[in-house]
Design a protein around this nucleic acid. Structure first.
Length: 656
DNA sequence: GTAGGGTTAG
């Protein structure tokens, strides 16, 4: 008896593999290996402290295998995510021992991991036959999670409904299941039922799923009330809950709220940093995102693949090829360069930074490609002036039997617009009718744009007329279409028709289209009127694109003083395009003084843009100042800047 | 001895 007690003390002291092995040999020596309590403890220690092979060896050699021993060994495999082995051992176990309520949840977890529908259903059958349901909530949550992971929410729900008195964990499992099956509304509804109809109090994990559902719905208000609830009740919640909140603020573009939360969080892990970096990267503060990343590395947190993706997006936005390449190197080091999402983000980054060759190299090395990666390469080709390649890419994807989605269709249409071959647009139109994409708003809008850009306003109008329910994007595209063709009056007519006859409210893009139509049609007064309407009546905040159109509009008419006045009103910072518009107007009206002012700013904001220097040098040349003109041209040479010569093609006629 | 949770490309 004293030996036994000593051994119990000893096993309590086991905290590494070596001591477990010693404990085991002692049990063998003293023949106490037969003691069920001690041998169970030994099994449990295996799964914690021993490498799985050692544990398996001891398990195989052990003279007596209790149900506990089987469970521990199975759990061991499951913990290491060796789900095949988990199920394999479970199958062997069935010949020796009857699984109990402790075995079932572990096995179900493995089925979930493998999405092994048949196996899981078989386990469910076993559970029903042995009536485990009512004796164990653990089995229930295992089943719910399993069906949810396989996407079978109806089965998950019916398991839940078998319980008369589900506890908070079971409710939470169901809420999480809906949240992860893209049904956040239902998740919120279930939560309400749990709290209001059943009077249960949510625990921090319930709140994690709740906040995640709010984030999916971009329901900032509900999310905030959870945050307030936590503060009121002084719920500590743990890191996951804070991270879920941080994600909510990130997703709903509440940069300030996110930054504040991030600042006050006492504990932060790599996910918290990742949320904050992605928040900056997606909300126009790419530089901040990169700064935060270097800060993170300095304090010794290693970036994971998710963070590398966010950083790449920040590089993309700022055109920072240098940091982009560094991220690439890091991804290679960490061995996730060719993970589908990392590789796709790399392709986007290289394409946006004008390095299509590096992007293509990655694409060709990818072992697995999906519609997103194909889309990235396709639109990258268009961005880099190789739209002619895009049809080949599209075909390549079809051959590899990956079905296109609506985003892909939008991109291929953009490629058509760029190439300007009407027949191609017609073919794609046919393809997307057959594929059932023609009732998608974005596809419809792109189709209108493509027809207009390929020269057939007629077809664009036909598509527009054929769309029964038009949203603001469809209207805007049609307005822009008239604008491309210089029909400013028709564009205006359509705009007024939209406001008068529909409940659709024009947005920033609509105004961009209509203002650009006015600018190209020389409708100065109308343009100014509409701009005022946009700001005063619709309370829209103009973006730099609106400003550059206004400068363009006013500048074209020759009133450069007025154009300058507009620039002076812009709340800083003024983008390069705005000064570019002023430079262009100065060139038209040969206003040297304004041209030099514009160039001074441009040489700071976009010093590597060859086109601006050439415009300026042409102005000097017209003025007869040949020496200054030559000097400017020399700058271009010294900087080794290249101006891609402008080219545009459009198919002249189509036989139909 | 067993269960539910946070970040990921267009």
């Amino acid at each position: 008896m004293r030996v036994w007690q000593g051994l119990v003390k000893l096993f309590e002291a086991c905290n590494n593999g070596e001591s477990v092995a010693q404990f085991h040999s002692l049990l063998l020596k003293t023949a106490l290996i037969w003691d069920t309590f001690l041998s169970s403890k030994l099994q449990n220690l295996y799964s914690i402290y021993m490498p799985i092979q050692t544990a398996r060896k001891l398990f195989d050699e052990s003279p007596k295998r209790t149900a506990y021993a089987w469970n521990s060994m199975i759990k061991c495999y499951c913990k290491e995510k060796k789900y095949d082995d988990t199920l394999g051992l479970f199958s062997v176990m069935l010949s020796f021992e009857k699984p109990d309520n402790f075995t079932i949840p572990i096995v179900l977890k493995a089925c979930s991991g493998l999405r092994a529908l048949h196996f899981g259903r078989m386990v469910h059958g076993f559970v029903k036959k042995n009536d485990c349901i009512n004796s164990s909530l653990f089995v229930g949550s295992g089943l719910i999670e399993f069906y949810s992971k396989c996407g079978y929410m109806e089965d998950a729900l019916s398991v839940f409904e078998e319980y008369d008195q589900p506890d908070v964990v079971l409710w939470t499992t169901l809420i999480t299941a809906y949240e992860q099956n893209d049904d956040p509304e239902e998740a919120l509804y279930i939560f309400n039922r749990m709290v209001e109809d059943n009077g249960l109090v949510p625990d921090p994990i319930t709140l994690v799923s709740l906040v995640s559902a709010c984030a999916q719905l971009l329901d900032l208000n509900s999310g905030r009330s959870v945050h307030a609830f936590m503060i009121r009740r002084e719920i500590q919640g743990g890191l996951s809950l804070w991270n879920a909140l941080l994600n909510l603020y990130t997703k709903s573009s509440s940069v300030k709220a996110a930054a504040h939360l991030f600042r006050v969080m006492e504990e932060k892990d790599v996910i918290s940093w990742g949320c904050m970096i992605s928040c900056y990267a997606h909300n126009g503060s790419a530089t901040r995102a990169l700064e935060l990343l270097s800060k993170m590395i300095v304090i010794g947190i290693q970036p994971n693949s998710v963070i590398v993706i966010s950083a790449l997006q920040a590089c993309e936005a700022t055109g920072n090829l240098e940091v982009g390449r560094k991220m690439h190197k890091l991804a290679v080091q960490k061995d996730f360069e060719l993970d589908i999402s990392v590789a796709t983000a790399l392709i986007d980054m290289y394409m946006s930074c004008n390095s299509p060759d590096e992007a293509t190299d990655i694409f060709e090395r990818m072992p697995e490609k999906d519609v997103v990666s194909w889309s990235a390469v396709l639109s990258g080709c268009v961005q880099n002036g190789m739209a002619h390649k895009s049809m080949e890419i599209f075909q390549g994807m079809i051959y590899s039997e990956i079905p296109p989605d609506s985003v892909m269709m939008v991109k291929i249409l953009a490629a058509c617009s760029e190439i300007g071959i009407l027949q191609q647009a017609c073919c794609i139109h046919g393809y997307l009718i057959r594929g059932g994409f023609d009732n998608n708003y974005f596809v419809g809008a792109s189709l209108i744009e493509s027809y207009a850009k390929c020269g057939s306003l007629e077809d664009a109008v036909k598509v527009f007329d054929g769309i029964q329910e038009r949203d603001v994007v469809i209207w805007s595209s049609m307005i822009a279409g008239f604008g491309f063709h210089g029909h400013a009056k028709q564009a205006l007519e359509l705009f007024h028709q939209m406001i008068k006859n529909t409940k659709i409210v024009p947005n920033n893009v609509t105004f961009l289209s209509i203002l650009s139509a006015c600018s190209h049609g020389g409708l100065l007064e109308e343009g100014i009127k509409l701009y005022n309407k946009m700001v005063n009546d619709y309370k829209l905040t103009p973006e730099s694109k609106h400003y550059s159109i206004m400068v363009d509009l006013v500048g074209r008419t020759g009133d450069l003083g007025q154009a300058m006045a507009i620039i002076n009103q812009i709340p800083s910072p003024v983008s390069a395009h705005v000064w570019g518009a002023l430079l262009g107007a100065s060139r038209i009206h040969q206003n040297m003084e304004m041209g030099e002012v514009a160039m001074k700013n441009l040489s700071l904001l976009d010093p590597d843009h060859a086109g601006y220097y050439i415009l300026l040098s042409n102005m000097y040349a017209v003025d007869g100042k040949w020496d200054v003109a030559a000097e400017v041209r020399n700058t271009v040479k010294e900087k080794q800047l290249k101006k891609l010569s402008g080219q545009s093609t459009i198919q002249y006629s189509v036989q139909r």
